[in-house]
Lab assay of single mutants.
Amino acid sequence: MDVFMKGLSKAKEGVVAAAEKTKQGVAEAAGKTKEGVLYVGSKTKEGVVHGVATVAEKTKEQVTNVGGAVVTGVTAVAQKTVEGAGSIAAATGFVKKDQLGKNEEGAPQEGILEDMPVDPDNEAYEMPSEEGYQDYEPEA
């Protein structure tokens, strides 16, 4: 019985440690998101679009440190934060509304985080759909 109880105690310690790591990862992701939003706020009209992409990228980098179902929630929060940063930029006159959601080359930025393969159960990952990809044929 002692062996059984000791095993359960060790398992509990492992769960607590994993929860603490997840909590730490979420806190880091939130900190990076805040950094990115402050970065966007300090940019001029020309830099705002690039700044919004930076927020998304920093958040995406930190999301990889967070495991399990938390990833889905962090990704949703990050996307809403990026959308909010863009709205703030438009409201303050840093950028025109028609410039939001495009990178410096004018290509749409939507789907940055949505296409990231995420499995809350950590069982399997699927690649994003290939609808947006084109076949590449090298020139002879």
Rank of each mutant, 00 (worst) to 15 (best):
N65E: 08
V95G: 04
E105Q: 14
Q99L: 11
V37R: 00
D135K: 05
T81I: 06
E123P: 08
F94V: 03
D119P: 13
E110S: 07
P117C: 11
K23Y: 06
T81A: 14
D135S: 04
Y125F: 09
K80R: 07
A90V: 13
A53D: 02
E28A: 09
S42F: 13
V3H: 03
H50M: 14
K12N: 01
L8C: 01
E57P: 02
K43D: 00
T81Q: 02
G41Q: 07
K10Y: 04
G86H: 11
T22L: 06
A30R: 02
G93Q: 04
K58L: 14
L8F: 01
E35S: 05
A27I: 14
G106W: 11
A17M: 12
V95D: 05
D121I: 07
T54N: 11
V16N: 04
K12E: 00
M127Q: 10
G25S: 14
S129E: 08
G51M: 15
N122Y: 08
P128H: 04
V74L: 15
T33N: 00
A85E: 02
V95T: 08
K32V: 09
T72V: 05
H50D: 06
V37M: 12
E130D: 12
A17I: 05
K60Q: 04
A91D: 04
G73K: 11
V82N: 03
K80V: 07
Y136H: 08
N122F: 06
A78Q: 03
E114I: 12
T22K: 00
K10G: 01
D98E: 10
Y136S: 14
G101F: 15
V55R: 01
S9F: 15
G41C: 11
S129Q: 09
G73T: 14
G67W: 11
K6G: 01
D98Y: 05
E137K: 04
A140E: 06
T33C: 03
K6R: 06
I88M: 10
E130T: 07
D98L: 10
A76L: 10
D115S: 05
G93F: 02
P128C: 04
P138C: 10
M5A: 02
A56Y: 15
T54P: 01
I112K: 04
A69V: 07
V71C: 04
V74D: 11
V118F: 07
D135A: 03
Q62P: 02
Y125W: 07
A17Y: 02
K6D: 03
E123C: 12
E13R: 05
G111V: 15
Y133I: 02
G25D: 02
E46L: 02
T81N: 02
L100M: 06
V63C: 06
V15E: 00
K6I: 14
V16H: 04
A11K: 00
P128Q: 06
T54R: 15
K97E: 07
A11I: 15
V48F: 07
A53Y: 13
I112Q: 06
E57G: 03
V49K: 13
G41T: 13
H50S: 10
D121V: 05
V16R: 09
M5E: 00
E130N: 11
K97I: 12
I88H: 02
L38W: 06
G67C: 12
V49C: 13
V40D: 00
G86F: 14
V48I: 12
P138N: 03
E57Q: 05
G93R: 03
D119F: 03
T59N: 01
K23N: 01
V48H: 00
A107C: 05
N65D: 04
A27K: 07
F94W: 15
V52H: 01
A17D: 02
D135C: 06
V63Q: 01
G132R: 11
M116D: 09
L38Y: 12
T75K: 09
G101P: 09
K102L: 13
V16T: 07
V71E: 02
K10Q: 03
E28G: 03
K80I: 06
S87P: 10
K12P: 00
V26K: 00
K45V: 14
K10R: 13
E83M: 09
A29W: 15
D98H: 09
D119C: 12
A107S: 09
G51V: 14
V95K: 06
A90H: 11
A18G: 02
Y136C: 06
E46H: 06
K60A: 13
G51K: 05
V15S: 00
G47S: 14
P138G: 11
K58C: 06
K12L: 13
K96G: 11
T54D: 01
A19S: 02
K23I: 02
E35P: 01
I112T: 09
Y133G: 07
T59M: 04
G67D: 01
D115F: 12
P108W: 09
A19L: 15
A76T: 13
V95N: 08
T22F: 07
H50V: 03
K96N: 14
E20P: 00
K97H: 09
V26Q: 00
D121Y: 14
P128R: 10
P120Q: 13
P128V: 03
V55F: 10
P117Y: 04
K23E: 00
G73P: 02
T44R: 01
T59Q: 01
D115Q: 08
K102N: 15
I88T: 03
A140V: 09
M116K: 06
P120I: 08
T59L: 04
I112D: 06
N122K: 15
V55P: 01
V16L: 10
D2F: 15
E46K: 05
G68C: 04
A91H: 09
D2I: 02
Y39N: 03
G14L: 12
E114W: 09
E114P: 12
K21I: 10
V74S: 01
D98I: 03
A29R: 02
E131F: 12
V77E: 02
A107W: 10
Q109T: 10
V16W: 11
V3T: 00
V26T: 01
Y133V: 04
F94N: 03
K6S: 02
P120E: 08
Y125V: 13
V16F: 14
K32Y: 11
A19E: 00
A53K: 15
G14E: 09
G106H: 06
A89R: 08
A53M: 09
A19H: 05
D135W: 06
K45Q: 05
G132N: 11
P128G: 05
V66W: 14
Q79H: 11
E83F: 12
V16K: 08
E20Q: 08
S129V: 08
E126T: 06
V16G: 03
V70S: 01
Q24P: 00
K32P: 01
N65K: 05
E57S: 06
A76H: 10
G51C: 14
V3I: 03
L113I: 14
E139M: 06
Q99H: 14
A53F: 11
E137S: 11
N65L: 07
K80G: 04
K102R: 09
K32I: 13
S42V: 09
L8D: 00
E104I: 05
M1F: 00
V52N: 01
G36H: 15
D119Y: 03
A107I: 03
E57Y: 04
K10A: 10
Y39M: 07
P117K: 09
V37W: 15
G106N: 05
T92R: 04
K96P: 05
A89P: 03
G7V: 14
E114A: 03
M5V: 08
G36V: 14
Q62E: 04
K34Y: 05
V66R: 04
E126Q: 02
L38P: 00
E104R: 14
Q99Y: 09
